[in-house]
């Protein structure tokens, strides 16, 4: 049996991150895109905590704390924007909001 070490956590984090990225790139519903972003952030948080343990440094966990705060703020503002957009255009998806094209 293989020993459980940091690499396992990091590989798992890389996989979650990649899945989140694929979702962000392929889904059209802005809400689901947001959820994918949350997935990617969680993957990153997992690496931070892993490194915190590996290097015996609490600062990694402090960074995760800040990432969570920023993620919360981002979700609040992002959902506010989505609500504002949906009010004007029912059922809009991310591709419909492309007025700022060159």
């Amino acid at each position: 049996m293989l020993a459980l070490n940091e690499t396992w956590y990091l590989v798992l984090a890389a996989m979650i991150f990649t899945i989140g990225a694929v979702g962000l790139l392929t889904r059209k519903n802005p809400l689901v895109m947001f959820m994918c972003v949350e997935l990617m952030l969680n993957a990153v948080n997992l690496t931070f905590v892993t490194f915190s343990k590996a290097l015996d440094d609490i600062a990694g966990q402090a960074i995760v704390f800040f990432v969570m705060v920023v993620a919360a703020a981002e979700v609040v503002v992002g959902l506010g924007i989505i609500v504002a957009i949906m009010r004007r255009r029912q059922g809009a998806n991310a591709d419909d909001i492309s007025l700022m094209r060159g």
């Binding site: 940091e6 915190s52 590996a54 290097l55 015996d56 440094d57 609490i58 600062a59």
Partner: peptide, 11 residues
Amino acid sequence: VTGQASTLAAI
């Protein structure tokens, strides 16, 4: 894991 182990904020 490469990198310096913490001296200041050790767990």
